[in-house]
Design a protein around this nucleic acid. Structure first.
Length: 810
RNA sequence: GCUCGGGUGGCGAAACUGGUAGACGCAAGGGACUUAAAAUCCCUUGGGGGCAACCCCGUCCGGGUUCGAGUCCCGGCCCGAGCACCA
């Protein structure tokens, strides 16, 4: 029975790490800097959940491993404490975010310390600290000066009950996800960042291995989000004289465009609408404007719309085609207008069918006949050719598209064009708990940036921070605060009363960690040069798009301003998996939430860490089962016993049994390789195997035990420190060297060679490594079972894979 | 619909460039120790058959390539995630 007492051991080492500043690298002089970043948490009232523990442990294992390999590892931690989460929670429990946040941070700090990660607590930060958000505001000003921030009126979702703007994600079936009230559309002036200017670069770098080595799932999500489509912009002349520009990915179907559809908000609608249709158009536009933005985008809704009375000319056929408006065409994508090709587009087909519009087929499959139903014929494949397309008929789809675009370009009627799904980033929030946007609106000068030496613009302490139904930020109620003279002309002016998006706070925190002690600069240039870009970033795929894309964008802007020497902030990113319970995501409503504190106090952080890392592959996550934790604990107890036995030993350097020797070297190789690829579960399994082998052969060889302690230390750091001390060392185990192995000793000298007959395994023969084929075959034939199955039949062929397998084909 | 993952024992999962499927762990059953229990230690454990040596079946389903397929190819089903009236 082991006398391992995790609670005492963990307290002891956490104290020592703090006293000895074990985890505080010298940022100015580190010779082999390694920046290991993990996504900092939002400090909720509930505290850290198991998913956080899993993610942080997995990142910390890698950080500790790199440290043992000789790197100066910087592993910072902080708090993403601004944002609507905290504000809503404060409203719910009738408290104030400024009161809640310090309490939550204290609780998080306690839990994070208990976890035993290698955090450098001397550089902790919170985004709500004026010393931090001063520079968030500075960042806004840099974008403003670079022409990358602009203001425009935009439609937003408005919940009349919560009195706030909602993100599209917060709207479910047209209703507010929190209170169920039907959401309305409102139009507000908001600040935007021109992320779309960077769409092409943000996309291209994803494939640039010299800049980014990221989880495939994450880059895939970013590609989807950026949503590049290649196509053409085509001008359609109208009877009214105006030109309607459309974007299409299918210029090959241009001859099949039998009508056009504009978004109801399209600016040309008034000009095109004839007197007779005016009433219908006005009514339709009003109805569309009243809709919320989300239900507008539900794909299987009936295709409503009205005719404007106006007509356009199809540029290739010269046909006069009607122009309609319909809400299935969205103003914010492409040009807000489409050429409708009902013969080859499902939505246009549905619309044409419903409203009795002409349908022309311009592409045909080779196997198609006159009687093929339209819906079926719409499915295009290889071998499709253009028909009813004048001189282009007979061409393949790809070839036809190319030729038509060339023709349009030569006539000045269109051009090749790339469109992105990505929108500019709206950073205005009509809420309280965020950094005020550092702008002063002057009636004479317009929006004027707050001079940098006047930053931060402190968030005033508002007792009543509840949003109201004006759609204006709560800060606008504090007249004393917002009435200021214009910095340029001195005339009375007013501060911007919106705060910035929480995603702006966390789009640059990795830069600030390096310079938390400086108040005169957001980040120190020489430190940035030493430490950035981040060597490894670990986080969840829930931030695959927004946070990671915005951080990349901000970094690119700063790079273009000459403030950073790199344009991609995260060299390597790995998305961790999720921990589920009994096959289902943990959630309060399901009642299957695991409280990590209980496990830490009952089993100790090391056992808990080891258990979480052993559950499954780090990048896939795993299923949490209470019973499973006993296994890792038993392993630690047994290893602790082995350390005790080893301590009593006086003999060293004795002859180690060959099997153990090989197992030892194999384990060192395997554990090293597995940790490199975040295969933590199999690394732990390998250590367990080595321990089992040692026990089976009664071996407690000191060198092996010492290596096991070092290899386990990333997973169970306090335990390893304690064992290390018991082994007689006075320094930290993390100042030890990672074990090395002798490649020759990872190979067994005698191997089991599989013997198959026609691919079926019939036995194995022990054979010295590297035995010649004839010898191995002779040995195999001599095997009783093999001989019986061969039954004297002639062997047609022998497959011999040295040291692995012999297959007789009969 | 498009794009990523994934589907292997009672359970979590292993299996390098195709080469003994189920490592490691949990749970379960049996045994030792104990007055008893817990803890610990030992044994068994994919399904079926056989006294046994051994034999048959088995990695979501259907085909294929191969001496040999969990792994590669074609087609399909299911689960998870992201995007989606995106023109």
């Amino acid at each position: 029975m082991s006398d391992y007492d995790p609670i005492a051991v963990e307290a002891k080492w956490q104290r020592r790490w703090a006293e000895r500043r074990t985890n505080e690298p010298d940022l100015d002089r580190a010779e082999r800097p390694y920046y290991l970043l993990m996504m900092f948490p939002y400090p909720s009232a509930e505290g850290l959940h198991v998913g956080n523990f899993f993610a942080f442990t997995g990142a910390d294992v890698f950080g500790r491993f790199q440290r043992l390999r000789g790197f100066d590892v910087f592993e910072p931690m902080g708090f993403d404490a601004f944002g609507i989460h905290t504000e809503n929670y404060a409203l719910k429990i009738n408290s104030h975010p400024a009161v809640l946040i310090p309490k939550n941070i204290a609780n998080f700090t306690r839990q994070l310390t208990a976890l035993g990660a290698m955090f450098d607590w001397s550089r902790v930060l919170s985004t709500t600290d004026p010393r931090y958000y001063k520079w968030t505001q500075w960042l806004f000003l840099q974008l403003f000066k670079a022409g990358k921030a602009y203001r425009k009126r935009a439609a937003v979702n408005w919940c009349p009950s919560c009195k706030t703007v909602l993100a599209n994600e917060q709207v479910e079936g047209g209703a507010c996800e929190r209170c169920g009230t039907m959401v309305e559309q409102r139009s507000l002036e908001q600040w935007f960042f021109r992320i779309t200017d960077y769409a092409e670069r943000l996309l291209a770098n994803l494939d640039d291995a010299s800049k980014m080595d990221w989880s495939a799932s994450t880059t895939a999500a970013q590609r989807n989000w950026i949503g590049r489509s290649d196509g053409a912009e085509v001008d359609f002349a109208t009877e009214a004289g105006a030109t309607i520009k459309v974007f299409t990915t299918r210029p090959d179907t241009l001859a099949g465009a039998t009508f056009m559809v504009l978004a109801p908000e399209h600016p040309l609608v008034d000009r095109l609408t004839t007197e007779g249709q005016a009433a219908a158009v006005t009514a339709y536009r009003a109805a569309a404007a009243a809709q919320d933005l989300v239900s507008r985008k539900i794909g299987d809704r009936e295709k409503t719309g009205v005719f404007t009375g106006g007509h356009a000319i199809n540029p290739v056929t010269g046909a006069k085609i009607p122009v309609w408006i319909a809400d299935y065409v969205l103003m914010e994508y492409g040009t807000g207008a489409i050429m409708a090709v009902p013969g080859h587009d499902e939505r246009d087909f549905a619309f044409a069918t419903k409203h009795g519009l002409e349908i022309v087929r311009v592409i045909a499959r080779e196997d198609e006949t006159e009687s093929t139903p339209l819906e079926e014929a719409m499915e295009e494949a290889d071998g499709c050719r253009l028909v009813n397309s004048g001189s282009w008929s007979g061409r393949t789809v790809a070839d036809g598209a190319r030729a038509i675009v060339e023709w349009l370009e030569s006539k000045g009627l269109g051009k090749r064009k790339v469109t992105f799904r990505l929108h500019d980033w709206c950073i205005s929030r009509q809420r309280y708990w965020g950094p005020p946007i550092p702008i002063i609106h002057c009636p004479r000068c317009g929006p004027v940036p707050v001079p940098e030496d006047q930053l931060p613009v402190l968030l005033p302490d508002l007792e009543d921070f509840r949003p109201d139904d004006t759609g204006i930020s709560p800060l606008a109620r504090n007249t004393e605060w917002y009435h200021v003279p214009c910095p340029t002309c001195g005339e009375p002016a007013r501060r911007e009363t919106d705060v910035s998006d929480n995603f702006l706070d966390n789009s640059w925190y990795f830069l600030r960690y390096l310079s938390t002690e400086f108040d005169d600069r957001p980040f120190d240039d020489s430190r940035v040069r030493r430490w950035m870009p981040v060597a490894t970033y670990v986080g969840g795929n829930e931030h695959a798009v927004l946070h990671l894309l915005y951080s990349r964008f901000i970094t690119m802007v700063l790079h273009d301003q000459g403030l950073l020497h790199f344009e991609e902030p995260f060299r390597r990113f790995r998305a961790h998996g999720t921990i589920v319970k009994d096959g289902a995501k943990m959630s309060k409503s399901k009642g299957n939430v695991v409280n990590p504190d209980e496990y830490v106090s009952r089993w100790g952080a090391d056992t808990f860490r080891l258990y979480l890392m052993f559950l499954g592959p780090f990048e896939e996550g795993g299923d949490f089962r209470d019973a499973g934790i006993a296994g890792p604990r038993r392993f630690l107890d047994r290893l602790s016993d082995l350390v005790s036995q080893c301590e009593r030993r006086t003999l060293t350097g004795e002859e180690i049994h060959r099997d153990i020797l090989v197992k030892w070297h194999q384990t060192k190789k395997k554990v090293t390789g597995d940790i490199e690829t975040l295969g933590y579960n199999t690394a732990i399994a390998a250590l367990m195997e080595l321990l089992n082998a040692m026990r089976d052969s009664n071996c407690a060889e000191r060198q092996i035990v010492k290596d096991m302690v070092v290899m386990l230390s990333p997973f169970a750091p306090h335990f390893a420190e304690e064992c290390w001390e018991r082994l007689g060392y006075t320094t930290s185990v993390f100042d030890a060297e990672w074990p090395t192995w002798d490649e020759k000793l990872t190979i067994e000298s005698v191997v089991d060679v599989v013997v198959q007959i026609n691919g079926k395994t019939r036995g194995t023969v022990r054979s010295p490594r590297g035995a010649p084929e004839e010898q191995a075959v002779a040995r195999a034939k001599a095997d009783e079972t093999v001989a019986r199955h061969l039954d004297g039949r002639p062997i047609r062929k022998v497959i011999y894979v040295p040291d692995r397998l012999i297959n007789f084909v009969v």
